[in-house]
Design a protein around this nucleic acid. Structure first.
Length: 596
RNA sequence: GCAGACGUAGUUCAACUGGAUAGAAUAUCGGAUUUCGGCUCCGAGGGUUGAGGGUUCGAAUCCUUCCGUCUGUACCA
């Protein structure tokens, strides 16, 4: 049982003893005490006045008296209105630290026997990744790592959107304007090359529309009749008929794009256990339509199209199969959901997809539940907000997107520039230096995107994101490097780091106790972050931890401390902090350096 | 039109899911190093939580009416 739970158990006993009532443990919770009051944990008694039949003050006082008398951990208490502040005994902090310090599995919760799939990234193969994808990928990767740490078995999945009219657009443009260009001949990364032709398609398509309008067509007609669009549609038909020429071009261009994506993924530091391709899955789901019709979940309209009625759930009627028998987006998604289950027998499935698709997933999940899928209740849409720029919205057509590759390169360059200026890495080989810049630049970027609650829309300010001070990745990385320096020195002069070396310790400075309280909180935060699918919770925690450590560092001497027991303890505390930072940062996909 | 999300110091974000005097960071101003890494630490100012009403011991959080921003509402994906 962890520390907070044992206090809560004590409170439960106190209720029984003082007021002859039982309250469920799940109703009880502790909050960290605010700085301006004495104590470490606070219990709010207001909700329990009915049970006690007393004033808030009297209730809190009775509970506090009981706890002080019966719990070794509670040394003292004070009552402010309905707030019961508990002061934890110093020995308790120390023994708590011993537990944390000697735990082999700290930062990894025991298996809970559940299997979850996290689908993220899901790119289109017609253009390179941009800033929005970065948020998606970092989020997905981190949520997967958090779930692992919380005891889940996790499968990371990528569903590549590699077919459809938008892919054909790049292909058509390439046929017309490509002149046989390849990534090698152009020096462009494959995904950027495909993206170039996607843009070219759009420009020429617009020009064609314009001339059609001038020739007397309405805007709507022009959009439908532009020759380039007709060609793209024709190409899609040929693709579905397995036309060898079209398939060959598709294979070639996709190959370039995958090579490009792989390079980007590698730099982002994300990976996948399984990759699904829509070119393989786009026909799935039709059998589910049959099943739904048989079960009476779906119904057929006169023209043969199949629908689901979700009006009783507060939504509309929704199409699941076209009149001509072809699939729509959701048909495929139903099929893919089943496929994932067949492949892995998952009981939870997380979709990391932007919030513009809230409605789509609402519909999809309701359908799968109506169909009685065992995994239905475990479906979850991790809906994240868009990333805005100070200049406004990103629009790919207007060229205001921030390209992922360029942004990463810029971040790393800035990190390099910054680090060279500080001149603290003499003795680094070229390779080491490059690795460090990569770590810092990517750390800054990831932290900037992950520190915000995923559900919220956020603003990306390029200048601020490259800052290295304040609530930033490099600030935390620096704290780690600083501790690493201490540990190197400790090893050099042979400081004893065993738990026994500080076994007679009895007094702590305030900042030491605060640091222990934070360290002890690590696993609770992992659990909370995993349950909420929010790396931001862990990011905030790590920032607080780094800050608290820096305060400790500024206030107390380590190697100048004459009491060897205290010295050992402080180095041990540093070591544990470094481990926690390293492990925590890895859960949000960020590496930490030994020197910087 | 309908549905949903959001609106918090100058700015970017928090607020443990209804708890104390709404906290951090940044920017601004002022301080700290005979030291183990100054990318550090300490302090100050900065708020009618978009506006009004309601619910209760207690509201940024729940309900309601406005105002504003965004997204969705395709036999597109």
């Amino acid at each position: 049982m962890n520390f907070q739970d044992s206090i809560l158990k004590g409170i439960q006993d106190a209720f029984t003893s003082c007021f002859q009532t039982t309250v469920g443990l799940e109703q009880l919770s502790l909050a960290p005490t605010k700085k301006e009051f004495e104590g470490s944990y606070t219990f709010v008694v207001f909700p329990f006045l009915k049970q006690s039949q007393l004033s808030p003050e009297a209730t809190a006082t009775q509970l506090g008296t009981y706890l002080k008398a019966h719990l070794a951990a509670v040394k003292d208490f004070n009552v402010v209105k309905g707030f019961l502040n508990l002061v934890v005994a110093q020995e308790e902090w120390i023994s708590l630290f011993r537990q944390v310090y000697t735990s082999k599995s700290f930062g990894q919760l025991p298996s809970n026997g559940e299997k979850v799939m996290v689908e993220y990234s899901s790119p289109n193969t017609n253009k390179p990744l941009h800033l929005g994808h970065l948020r998606n990928n970092f989020l997905g990767y981190s949520v997967a790592e958090l779930l692992k740490a919380a005891g889940y078995e996790v499968i990371k999945a990528n569903l590549v959107n590699d077919r459809g009219i938008h892919i054909c657009k790049s292909m058509v443009a390439y046929q017309h304007f490509g002149n046989g260009e390849t990534p090698t001949s152009s020096g462009l990364k494959g995904d950027h090359l495909a993206g170039k032709y996607y843009v070219l398609f759009d420009t020429h398509y617009k020009a064609q529309q314009k001339s059609l309008i001038e020739a007397g067509q309405s805007e709507e007609e022009a959009k439908k009749n532009a020759p380039l669009l007709l060609e793209a549609q024709e190409m899609l038909r040929k693709w579905e008929d397995q036309d060898s020429e079209v398939i060959a071009l598709w294979t070639q261009m996709n190959g370039w794009v995958y090579a490009g994506f792989n390079a980007t993924y590698q730099r982002m530091g994300v990976d996948f256990d399984v990759t699904y391709y829509e070119s393989n899955t786009y026909l799935l789901g039709k059998d589910i339509v049959e099943e739904g019709l048989a079960k009476g979940v779906f119904f057929k309209k006169e023209n043969g199209s199949v629908w689901v009625d979700l009006t009783d759930e507060g939504l509309d009627e929704k199409l699941v199969l076209r009149g001509d028998g072809t699939s729509v987006y959701i048909t495929q998604d139903m099929g893919t959901a089943d496929l994932k289950y067949q492949d892995f027998q998952i009981n939870k499935s997380v979709y990391v997809v932007g919030n513009e698709q809230d409605y789509h997933f609402d519909v999809l999940f309701k359908i799968m539940r109506k169909l009685g899928r065992s995994y239905g209740p475990g479906l979850y849409h991790l809906s994240y907000g868009m990333v805005d720029l100070p200049t406004g919205k990103m629009k790919s057509r207007e060229g205001t997107v921030v390209d992922a590759d360029e942004l990463m390169e810029e971040m790393v360059e800035t990190a390099a520039h910054h680090t060279k200026e500080l001149g603290k890495i003499e003795g680094f080989t070229e390779t080491q230096a490059t690795e460090l810049y990569e770590m810092l630049g990517m750390g800054a970027l990831k932290y900037f995107l992950l520190k915000v609650d995923p559900k919220k829309r956020m603003l990306f300010n390029p200048q601020e994101s490259i800052e290295f001070q304040g609530n930033t990745g490099p600030f935390i990385q620096y704290s780690h490097a600083r501790i690493a320096a201490i540990l190197r020195k400790a090893e050099q002069i042979g400081v004893d780091l065993s738990v026994e070396s500080f076994s007679n310790l009895s007094e702590l400075a305030e900042t030491e106790a605060a640091l222990i309280q934070l360290l002890n909180d690590f696993e609770r935060k992992i659990k909370q972050a995993a349950e909420d699918y929010s790396p931001a919770i862990l990011a905030q925690y790590l920032f607080d931890l780094a800050k608290e450590y820096n305060r400790f560092y500024a206030e107390l001497p380590i190697f100048h401390e004459k009491d060897l027991q205290l010295q050992s303890f402080r180095v041990a505390l540093s070591l544990q902090t470094a481990k926690t930072i390293k492990r925590g940062m890895s859960l949000i996909g960020i590496q930490v350096p030994e020197r910087m």
